[in-house]
Computed example of a mutant assay.
Amino acid sequence: MQRKKILITGAAGFLGSHLCDRFISEGYYVVGMDNFITGDKKNIEHLLGLENFEFVAHDVTNFIELRGGLDYILHFASPASPIDYLKIPIQTLKVGALGTHNLLGLAKAKKARMLIASTSEVYGNPLVHPQTEDYYGNVNTIGPRGVYDEAKRFQESITMAYHRFHGIETRIVRIFNTYGPRMRLNDGRVIPAFLGQALRGEDLTIFGDGSQTRSFCYVDDQIEGIYRLLLSDYSEPVNIGNPNEITIKDFAEEIIKLTGTKQKLIYKDLPVNDPMQRQPDITLAKKLLGWEPKVERFEGMKITFEYFKSLTEEELYKSEHKDFSSYINK
């Protein structure tokens, strides 16, 4: 029987590389695509040379052409951390708009089913808690974070337009904070920032008073939810995340306990439009997909910390310092 073929954009990124692993293990022929703006070749080196994996170096904001048939597309190409999208705001908007448009055109031409990676950031600084899929959000369109939030909101809109107007099979996953091996240190997100500081013996920096909340989902659970959603028959957005909510201050104290270090907590001003609450309502995912997270936060964090401790000094430096100079003006 011929293998199903799937295109995964952002394949060298955190989630993209884990998705490549999962679909290869399920027997798919995987085409990974990335231009390494935020991705790292190291994340997919173990796949190069496999008979059912092919890598294409390409920027999805440019026209995309693939030979042969195609069954599925997973669109995970996008900067996803505040440090990244604040340094390359235009590229972030382009990958959400032009990149998604190009891939939907490819899906139409190939008659492929397409899943897009949306985000809890479409809810902005929410006035509804926990966040359900029918909540429209509270987003500042012209604030610093708007380049990412609006890119994802537009991405959802054009995907549903192609679904309704062209009859394309589409799926939308709204991803809440996810963590695990292959994250980049100090990319502006809570977990890599805290772990990076712990590894260097620095005090942990909390923005605001630490009362804001986040809900962290281990990568294996996230990938399982995405996998099930792709193969479902549901076309509207679905939250995939862990509803176990914790304040940033309490989480920082958990990190100190986990790492066995003696750091203090230091406080800085809260960034503009930083959301005060993040907790997914996963009622729909439970009902529709039979999915809910299984990995406890302390267990997942221990695995993640051990991953970062295993990196060489060169790998740690590379993880912390990403060069965006060639993309700044694009």
Rank of each mutant, 00 (worst) to 15 (best):
I175T: 10
F176S: 00
P181Y: 06
R184K: 14
R184C: 02
L185A: 04
N186R: 13
F194E: 01
L195K: 01
A198K: 02
L199K: 02
E202N: 14
E202I: 05
D203V: 06
L204R: 09
F207I: 10
S211L: 10
Q212K: 12
F216I: 11
C217L: 10
C217W: 00
Y218I: 01
V219N: 00
D221L: 04
D221N: 08
Q222P: 01
Q222K: 08
Q222Y: 09
I223S: 04
I223E: 02
I223V: 15
G225W: 05
I226F: 13
R228W: 08
R228S: 07
L229F: 07
L230S: 09
L231K: 11
L231M: 15
Y234K: 09
P237S: 11
G241E: 02
N242W: 04
P243A: 03
N244Q: 14
I246F: 01
E253V: 13
E254F: 09
I255G: 03
K257F: 10
Q263F: 06
I266V: 15
Y267R: 11
K268H: 11
K268G: 00
L270F: 06
L270K: 15
P271M: 12
N273F: 12
D274A: 15
M276A: 12
M276K: 13
R278G: 03
R278Y: 12
Q279D: 00
P280M: 06
I282H: 05
I282C: 01
T283A: 13
K286P: 01
K286F: 03
L288T: 04
L288C: 07
L289G: 06
G290K: 11
W291C: 03
W291Q: 05
E292H: 12
R297P: 01
R297T: 14
F298A: 13
M301I: 05
I303R: 14
I303C: 00
I303Y: 04
E306H: 10
E306W: 07
Y307H: 11
Y307F: 15
Y307K: 00
E314Y: 09
L316V: 10
Y317E: 14
K318F: 09
S319C: 11
E320H: 04
K322I: 15
D323Q: 10
